[in-house]
Amino acid sequence: MKIGLFIALMLFGFASQAQVLTYRQGDPFLFCTKGRDDPSRCWWPMPPYLGTTYMVNPACEPNPYGKPWSADDVASFEQYATVCPAGQRPGGWDSAAGQPEFVPNYH
Rank of each mutant, 00 (worst) to 15 (best):
G35Y: 00
P104T: 09
L9T: 01
P39E: 14
M10W: 05
S16W: 02
S16P: 00
S40R: 15
F6A: 08
P45M: 02
Y23A: 01
D72H: 09
Y65G: 13
C60N: 11
P28D: 12
A15V: 05
D72M: 08
M1W: 04
F12S: 07
E61D: 05
D94C: 05
P85D: 14
A71N: 12
H107Y: 07
R41W: 01
P85L: 15
A96W: 05
G66N: 13
T33R: 11
M55F: 06
P28C: 01
R24N: 14
Q19I: 08
Q17L: 06
W43C: 08
G13K: 04
P68I: 02
L30P: 03
P62T: 04
F14R: 10
V103I: 13
E61Y: 06
A15Y: 05
C84V: 07
P85M: 13
G87I: 09
T52K: 12
P58T: 10
F77C: 04
Q17W: 01
D37H: 10
C42H: 11
M46G: 02
P45A: 01
A18D: 05
G4S: 06
V74G: 08
A86P: 05
M46R: 15
G13Y: 02
A15M: 08
V20S: 12
P100C: 13
A81Y: 01
M1P: 09
C32F: 01
Q99K: 08
A86Q: 15
G13L: 02
A86S: 15
F77L: 15
T22G: 07
T82Q: 13
G87E: 15
F102S: 12
V103A: 03
R41N: 12
S95G: 02
D27I: 02
F31W: 02
D73I: 00
T22W: 04
A81K: 15
C84Q: 05
A96M: 07
F77S: 03
D94W: 01
K67V: 10
E61F: 10
K2M: 05
S76I: 06
F31G: 03
V20A: 15
C84D: 11
E61G: 07
V20M: 09
